[in-house]
Write a protein that binds this DNA or RNA. Structure first.
Lengths: 329, 329
DNA sequence: TTGTATGCGTTATCAG
DNA sequence: CTGATAACGCATACAA
């Protein structure tokens, strides 16, 4: 691969002049610029970002850690983040932690090692020490989707509490009284908030929460399937189920089918997060859709604003969720 | 951030000794190693991959270009690739070209600029000049999912032709005679092969292909919707539809619903590529599932083997698809 | 408007 | 087993 010096020699200038042409810094005469650009084209010159980053400590790169790359919610967050970043001249390293604290740690090291200028993190664990490495390294970061207590960083969330209340309120309005909850990981703020919203909605309606109808697992398919199977042991059966996210809901559907139960005829089902493809397919679950694209884009905006002003106080942005009512409930 | 020299000073050794400890190259006494590792831990030292890559031109990084990050097929390919890469000490830059030749070009430049050691590419266009930049830069690469005529590179494909024949064969066995085809982009090998398989299966069954039942678009939701609407103008209506991929199928479903038609009662629908979540939901499309994870993993294996032996002749690997028969057809 | 000297953090090379 | 020196490709600081 050609280097900046080879380009310079071909164009009959010094390397720094080529640098100035590429980066549009400083003055270069029109004629010189022409010659340099020709030389660049002829040699297929591609600047070496390693050398550039090493010298300038500006890598124009951000990191994004998501917890489940196969979930449409997260790929949409990623697209929102990427579009916002590219629009500002940054690229994004997309990393999938799979809800694993170990993978999260490895990727955070990798991001530090690549000298990204900032990171957007959906924390796999609520343990704030997991982010301590970033703080020690003074790497600016934004937390997305989940609160982590005691971490002093910008934060972008969907309104889990409000969304859960609305979903359960929707079921109540349809006449359901025996409503179960399939919850996510204990300690993950979205899961905790959604359970709280569920409880508050029931209590406000004068319904006592039946502890046997509240199950917590993790945000995985198997969990949804297993917890739903457990719920189906209850008697009487719940008439409706509120799943804490889309993956849990799909797992629950599998368990329901297994038992020959139809949605919504036999059991109503609602969940957090949209099912992009399935939304076009029966049974059309009612969902509380988070603005995933905006979550990603907002996180990048906050991060870039922090890079510009490292001393501004941390912000918390809570984006509203949208209730998409479909025929299932 | 601490540098290797600071670690060296703290441990009372030369920088190169720290390097040897980190990279497990050369001999270091057990006692020295201990001291160095302590210093690394105390200083939170994270090696700078920019400097490392600059000096050694080994970045331990691969690039992966996919055409649609929101499609579960491609996220699964990415996971397969990533697992295989990480297992061999590589990390992967995941890039989403969105089927756009322009984005593909930008990302290829970015990969060259980051000095990745190799790339895995799902070509957004069948234009081989799009890959010329890689050949000029002598960057080893593997093509995945789609053939590009005239490119001399390793290739990993699913069996589009065979899978299409099987899917259409399945419909024929169910008694369908008027079968439509929703095809992908003209010139994209998967789309071309699938149309060919469709035609061959019909011809072999003694059925003449009705040109008005064959529509080609791109692999986007809108395309599936629009083409299906067009098909619904035909008279008599087709009794079955073969969509060239999962996204087209979902678009087709939307158009069918719009017209109040049920799947499979009114129109049978089959497609290429699985619908991971929707598979648990009605209407349970019969699909030809490609081994997406293995496609990704195989591509990485081929790429790494090429890095080890740049002169071995290119290989072509065709992985079989699996017919998942569900109740829709 | 252009150029020279220098160093970013690491590892290759050679020396001991 | 350990170290000194130089160089990777580029951009900063300063000079002309």
């Amino acid at each position: 691969m050609a280097t900046i010096r080879e380009v310079a020699r071909k164009a009959g200038v010094a390397a720094i002049t080529v640098s100035r042409v590429i980066n549009r810094t400083g003055y270069v005469s029109e004629e010189t610029r022409q010659r340099v650009e020709e030389a660049i084209a002829e040699l297929d010159y591609v600047p070496n970002v390693l050398a550039r980053g090493l010298r300038s400590s500006r890598t124009h790169t951000l990191g994004l850690l998501v917890t489940d790359i196969t979930n449409g919610f997260w790929t949409t967050v990623a697209r929102g983040a990427e579009d916002a970043a590219v629009g500002s001249g940054y690229s994004v390293f997309l990393c999938n932690t799979d809800e694993s604290a170990t993978k999260q740690e490895q990727y955070l090291r990798a991001l530090l090692s690549h000298r990204v200028e900032g990171a957007i993190i959906a924390p796999a664990s609520s343990d704030r020490t997991a982010l301590a490495a970033l703080e020690r390294a003074r790497l600016p970061f934004v937390i997305v989707d989940r609160r982590v207590p005691g971490v002093n960083a910008d934060l972008v969330l969907g309104d889990s509490l409000g969304g859960a209340r609305e979903l359960v309120g929707h079921l109540l309005a349809r006449g359901h009284r025996r409503i179960a909850h399939l919850g996510g990981p204990v300690g993950v703020s979205t899961a905790d908030d959604r359970e709280r919203g569920y409880r508050e909605a029931l209590t406000a309606a004068g319904i006592e929460v039946d502890p046997s109808l509240v199950r917590r697992g993790d945000y995985k398919l198997e969990s949804g399937c297993r917890l739903m199977r457990e719920l189906l042991q209850c008697s009487p059966l719940p008439t409706a189920v509120f799943a804490a996210n889309n993956v849990l809901a799909v797992g629950a559907l599998a368990a329901l089918r297994e038992r020959g139960l139809r949605v919504p005829e036999d059991v109503a089902l609602v969940c957090f997060d949209d099912l992009p493809q399935a939304s076009l397919i029966d049974p059309f679950l009612t969902v509380a859709a988070q603005p995933a694209y905006e979550l990603g884009a907002t996180a990048v905006r906050l991060l870039l604003s922090r890079l510009a002003d490292p001393h501004r106080p941390p912000e918390m942005v809570v984006l509203p969720v949208q209730l998409l009512i479909r025929r299932s409930s």
